[in-house]
Design a protein around this nucleic acid. Structure first.
Lengths: 217, 217
DNA sequence: CCGCATCCCATGTGATACTG
DNA sequence: CAGTATCACATGGGATGCGG
């Protein structure tokens, strides 16, 4: 039941024993964004087999990375304080991976949690601090997010109702939004080519979005 | 041949597809410390099967993380510029894993490269900057390292001959050195209990070592 | 229903042997 | 030295079942 080890005594080795097995890092990623129920995790990781999810949850608990939330009627998983310390590492790792992403294949999905982590990785607080507070509503391949930027603070939350929010800019995009964030595509061309479709608000704010969230290879 | 994917389009997912398979992260760790030949990698990862090492080297090359060094007579592997960008992530991940290490089991090994990465993770540049430049010679379970600290700079290299170096402090230790770095054991008790055995130089400098390299849970 | 556990088969991994 | 080849075995994937 314990994760397979490498027979080596070192930091990287230990880290990989804790979160290096298949799917484990993605489970921790989602839990870093908030407590989740078993079904929510399964929904956020559509291709994970249920037996693997169950096994990983046990292993991560045994490793002290996550735990079941105490004094809760229903079963809820959350990161432990030690697991929480993975947060900056996760953001940096996500940024590195983001830079290595090519164009999306048709069958690839984007989940709210993966999108949220990517936004956090691409977020440039120092740039945002120079811009007015802004609320964006984004819909990317089914994932709907409410993105609030205020000074150096970023808050991303999953919202079911996008339309009736007081957003400054609402837009829908395919995974091609990656090209907007990487700078391969400017805001205006993104709209013109249909990569980004403005649903409401001021289309000119897409440039502000691209300045706020930027991660180039 | 390509790494198994997760069917998801996101930074963390991509990162795990690139370096998430078993042994891949350890190979990159070693290559981040310098170019290595196939045999050197195999020696630094004693328990990796040769077919797996060969497979990972191919995959990491296809992923653009490592490459064969150009215009070299012999075959040498090295990180690409993109792979080099993993360095800060690796150090942070190693620090996180280090904090999660318990006491070593008897069969666990320490390699020069794993020890070097742990030292880098535990290195406190801001503390070192306040201390005189110091050269340490350390021998930990067969791994011999020459550790030079000068201001905010850290240089660790593998040296075969430890004795005839102008080191300020030379010591041998078991994996229990982890307790010295984590602060669970002070310098004097470490020497008294035999966890650290001073081979030469000023034993009082072990306190400086413990101040320079510190990583607590 | 939610939170898993079981089953079976495909694939990946490990140990060893072998080769250009 | 730098890998391949082979085969036994462990793990992952997908479907399904089941108890609280």
């Amino acid at each position: 039941m314990a994760a397979r080890d490498y027979g080596e005594y070192g930091g990287i080795t230990r880290a990989m024993e804790l979160v290096g097995e298949r799917w484990a890092m993605l489970i921790v990623r989602d839990l870093l964004l908030g407590p989740r129920r078993y079904g929510e995790l399964a929904a956020g990781l559509p291709r994970i087999p249920s037996n693997i999810l169950a096994a990983r949850l046990k292993e991560l608990q045994a490793a002290g990375v996550i735990r079941r939330a105490p004094r809760s009627r229903v079963i809820i998983y959350e990161v432990t304080p030690y697991g929480r310390e993975l947060e900056p590492v996760m953001v940096a790792l996500g940024a590195w991976g983001f830079k290595g992403m090519g164009d999306p294949r048709e069958e690839q999905i984007i989940t709210p949690d993966s999108m949220t982590m990517d936004l956090r990785a691409a977020f440039r607080a120092s740039v945002a601090a120079t811009l007015p507070a802004t609320v964006y509503g984004a819909r990317v391949r089914g994932a709907e997010l409410l993105i609030r930027v205020d000074g150096r603070a970023l808050d991303v939350r999953r919202e079911l109702t996008l339309e009736d929010r007081p957003v400054d800019l609402a837009f829908a995009a395919g995974p091609g939004i990656h090209r907007l964030i990487s700078g391969a595509l400017g805001p205006e061309p993104a709209i013109e080519t249909g990569v980004v479709r403005v649903l409401g608000g001021d289309p000119g704010l897409l440039g502000r979005f691209a300045s706020t969230f930027h991660l180039a290879a």
